[in-house]
Simulated scan of single mutants.
Amino acid sequence: MEQIEEHYMIRRITAKDQTAIENMDTGLESDYIKMVFPWIVKEDVLYGAFIGETLVGLIGYHVFEGKFVVLGRLRVAVPYRKQGLAQFLMAKAFNEVKTNKDYRWVGLATQENNLAVHHIARHLNMSHVARFHACQLHEEGKKALEAWCRNEYEAQPKKAWTRLRRPEDKRALLQSLEGQATSLGMFPYQCYYPLPYDQELFSDAYLDQCEAWVSGEECILFNADTKGVDYLHLKYFGERLFEQPDIWSIVLDHAEKYNQTIWIDVNQTHYDLMPKEWFTVDEPWHLYGQYLKTEPHLTP
Rank of each mutant, 00 (worst) to 15 (best):
Q111E: 04
E112Y: 09
N114Q: 09
N114W: 12
N114D: 12
L115C: 02
L115H: 12
A116N: 10
V117E: 03
H119M: 09
H119I: 04
H119F: 09
A121Y: 06
R122P: 01
H123V: 04
H123M: 04
N125W: 10
N125L: 05
M126Y: 06
M126D: 07
H128E: 05
H128R: 04
H128Y: 08
V129I: 11
V129T: 05
V129S: 00
A130T: 05
R131L: 00
F132P: 09
F132M: 12
C135T: 12
H138C: 03
E139N: 03
E139G: 00
E139F: 08
G141K: 02
K142C: 10
A144T: 07
L145S: 06
E146F: 02
A147P: 03
N151Q: 07
E152H: 14
A155Y: 04
A155Q: 09
Q156I: 06
K159E: 02
W161H: 08
T162C: 03
R163W: 04
R163D: 00
R163P: 09
L164N: 09
R165G: 02
R165F: 13
R165C: 08
P167G: 08
E168V: 03
D169H: 15
D169L: 10
D169R: 14
L174R: 06
S176M: 02
S176E: 00
L177T: 03
E178D: 04
G179Y: 11
S183K: 11
G185K: 12
M186D: 04
P188T: 11
P188A: 07
Y189A: 05
Q190H: 15
C191A: 14
Y193V: 15
